[in-house]
Design a protein around this nucleic acid. Sequence first.
DNA 1: ACAAAAGTGTTTAATGTACACCCATGG
DNA 2: CCATGGGTGTACATTAAACACTTTTGT
Lengths: 234, 234
Amino acid sequence: MQPKSHLDNYFKSAFTVDNVIFGFDEGELKVLLIRRSEEPYDNYWALPGYFVRQNEDLDEAAQRVLWETTGLQNVYLEQLRTFGAPARHAFGRVITVAYYSLVKIADFTPRADGLSREVAWHNLQEVGELAFDHARILETAIAHLQQSIRNRPVGFELLPPEFTLTELQHLYEAIWGTELEKRNFRKKILSMQLIIPLDRMQQGVSHRPARLYRFDEARYRALTQQGFNFEVRG
Amino acid sequence: MQPKSHLDNYFKSAFTVDNVIFGFDEGELKVLLIRRSEEPYDNYWALPGYFVRQNEDLDEAAQRVLWETTGLQNVYLEQLRTFGAPARHAFGRVITVAYYSLVKIADFTPRADGLSREVAWHNLQEVGELAFDHARILETAIAHLQQSIRNRPVGFELLPPEFTLTELQHLYEAIWGTELEKRNFRKKILSMQLIIPLDRMQQGVSHRPARLYRFDEARYRALTQQGFNFEVRG
DNA sequence: ACAAAAGTGTTTAATGTACACCCATGG
DNA sequence: CCATGGGTGTACATTAAACACTTTTGT
């Protein structure tokens, strides 16, 4: 590093990452929030996030901070957008890079950690006031998710490796807040030939067990490069 | 401001904005680059960008910096993505918020300003080595543009207020690098009822003058809120 | 045998695709 | 009167949308 004096004034900012973790469980779309244990906004519900360290890449930081605030690990995170209004943080200039993700709640047991008093899944409708500009970040994330699931198979990256068609359908329904027609949904999804039927079946349900499928990632990459457009409509 | 000592270490970063300005002229898609007049990467071609001031919002900064480096003003800019690899800047930790835009080249006369030696439009194919990670930022912007023009009427926000259908079609063709069928393109665009035919015609062309249209922004907002999906295919 | 969700096919409507000619203007 | 791009309609193929019943399993 060889700082130049006329630039010194610029090296006085901090930046954070904030994670919007959508959880999908029993057909419900939820968001993971922490209750803060630090000023400012001590005790408020907030998105799990914290400062990025000097030698850390943004994606890494998002992973680490999520781990430190909620105990969640190895979550697929995607950068959403950066929020940087000058007065958004009381302690100085802090811009935040927002990430978002969608995980299957059953796979994760979040717990409060050093940087939070409490961690909980909240129904999207029941989110009250949030710290900082987190309400706006959350809105942006919801809008982005609804858009992006339309044209890219986001769902597959976020569902468990093996899933049933009904689970996949419920995911779309939860995100869009609409109902889809079972036969048409299946026809459309299967016609893309992007998911592979497995020999395994659902276990331990008290009705006819559904077939499990997995996403054909190799084929998806190949098709995408040829200009293929994955598209599911609401 | 009431800085807390245990957080002081975090307030040592700087952030910049970098603008990917796509220009559209005579059916060609180009990108606006500056030749830097400062270390690091003195003399290299780069995206127009600079440090964000302490009391400036990000969107504002993008506008200002574009003005200072190229003389361009009132350009529609949209946030693209933030790049923050720890070693991407030699003088310290600098993350950059990338913006992108598409302007009609004829409307703007960029000129070198205080922060650049030279400003020029480059064909996308003829961009050589760039400063910092700007090549990667440019790639990301291209991919994003190709995607986003599919589902949102980005073109309208970026074309001049009055345009012909052929201009609109050329825009799509330039971005996707494909040819579109004239009749079908028109049918599709007109069937959305999102553009309004004007009484005015093109002037000073040595062939039948084309009708001018303008985008119906109010109707677009109304439809979008009802879940309407603008879609044009390549 | 019943409850509960899985799974499947066909008809109709809407949309996309391919294609060729006349029109208005300037030079 | 010629060159140039503007503008249009129709037939055919593909895709979306609507809709009801049979199958498999656990209890």
